[in-house]
Simulated scan of single mutants.
Amino acid sequence: MSARKLGAVHAVPVDDFADAVLSGLSKPQKAISSQFLYDARGSALFEEITGLPEYYPTRTETAILSAYAAEMVEGLGADGVLVEFGSGSSVKTELLLSQLPLHVIYVPVDVSESALVEATERLSARFPQVDVRPVVGDFSHPIQLPQDLNRRPAVGFFPGSTIGNFGPAEAVRLLRSFGRGLPDASRFIIGVDLKKEARRLVAAYNDAEGATAAFNLNLLVRINRELDGDFDLESFRHEAIYDPRAGRIEMHLVSDVAQDVRVLGRPFRFKAGESIHTENSYKYTTDQFREMASAAGWQAGRLWTDANADFSVHELFGFGRG
């Protein structure tokens, strides 16, 4: 789970959803991308999760941003640009915007046009001096900023530890893509969840109230509703495990019984105990993440963490395009 998605409903075309589900259920290890967890109901459930006592990332990162926002955006003047990738509802961004001068430009990038409209209206009312220029786009693909912004000083922003949803090699490619999409000599501010004891990690993705289980199982509800599926929700359960070798939390939907399921008329066989892998969330040490950023062409700058070193916010700069 990634806190950037708070409040955002990601409008993925039905054909893309269908292709991903049919392809994913055909694999030896059935798997469906975590992006499809966030329909309207999924986004509401995730918002609930972020307030649970077990789920530390959102409140911890918010506290770090609250304490150090001025440092993170220092030097970005009135002609500057703040670019947020996967902005969603832009709630955390308000902490940075409150520290910026008049007439700064804010460019939220998100696949959900409705989320961008809502965020633009709210931010324009609260920060009338900020020029909000939303861009509809998938940040996992190269993003083109408006032409007139390419020579302005810029800070990129990617909170929520969303980078953890990508495998290390994918994350390096994504960091490189961010650098190429920003103006030369930009800085980049990114949230990264840190490694910690497995017990706490598993608890964060398997809360006592069952909100994360409902969030994960909602994927099957969505498949039944949008793709004429016939999943029996009572015969599937949520499971969160930590793989210490890979350094990641995995979320699965496990079939308790042997059963056949149909989606868009196609049959899929499940053995008892077989699962659909729905999400990865990689955790890093600060050194591991800095090595990954270096491999993507960035240099490590300042590092901000909480007192318990549960979460980190990194400054990257000097992206090399060579």
Rank of each mutant, 00 (worst) to 15 (best):
Gln144Ile: 11
Glu170Tyr: 04
Gly164Cys: 01
Leu116Ala: 09
Gly164His: 01
Ile190Leu: 02
Ile143Leu: 02
Arg152Glu: 07
Glu121Pro: 00
Phe188Val: 01
Val202Phe: 10
Arg122Asp: 04
Phe127Asp: 01
Arg133Ile: 05
Pro153Phe: 09
Arg151Gln: 13
Phe139His: 01
Ser186Glu: 13
Arg122Met: 06
Leu149Tyr: 06
Ala208Gln: 13
Thr212Phe: 10
Thr162Met: 08
Asp207Arg: 01
Arg133Phe: 06
Ala198Glu: 14
Ile143Thr: 12
Gly156Pro: 09
Arg173Trp: 03
Pro128Thr: 01
Val192Ser: 00
Ala119His: 00
Gly181Lys: 00
Leu182Val: 03
Gly179Val: 10
Gly160Asn: 02
Arg180Tyr: 05
Ala214Arg: 15
Val135Asp: 02
Leu123Ala: 09
Tyr205Pro: 03
Ala154Gly: 08
Asn206Ser: 14
Pro128Trp: 10
Asn150Ala: 09
Leu194Thr: 10
Arg199Trp: 06
Lys196Cys: 05
Arg180Gln: 15
Ile190Met: 01
Asn206Trp: 07
Leu194Asp: 04
Val155Ser: 07
Phe166Ser: 07
Asn165Met: 09
Thr162Tyr: 06
Tyr205Cys: 11
Val136Met: 12
Leu194Pro: 12
Val132Ala: 05
Ala203Ser: 14
Glu121Asn: 11
Ser186Trp: 04
Ala169Asn: 11
Ala198Val: 11
Asp138Gly: 02
Tyr205Asn: 09
Arg151Glu: 13
Gly181Gln: 02
Ser161Lys: 07
Asp148Met: 06
Asn216Ala: 15
Arg180His: 14
Glu170Ile: 05
Arg199Leu: 11
Phe178Ala: 02
Gly181Ser: 15
Arg200Trp: 03
Glu121Arg: 15
Leu145Ile: 05
Gln129Ile: 02
Ala208Cys: 08
Val135Met: 00
Ala204Gly: 07
Val202Ser: 05
Glu209Ser: 14
Arg200Ile: 07
Gly164Lys: 09
Val155Pro: 05
Ala125Leu: 13
Asp193Gly: 10
Glu118Thr: 12
Ala211Leu: 14
Ala198Gln: 13
Leu194Ile: 12
Glu197Leu: 10
Arg151Thr: 12
Phe215Pro: 00
Leu174Glu: 07
Asn150Asp: 08
Leu174Tyr: 12
Gly167Trp: 04
Pro159Gly: 07
Phe139Gly: 01
Gly179Gln: 07
Leu175Thr: 08
Ala171Met: 06
Gly137Pro: 02
Asn216Ser: 15
Asn150Pro: 01
Glu118Trp: 06
Gly160Glu: 09
His141Ser: 14
Asp184Ile: 05
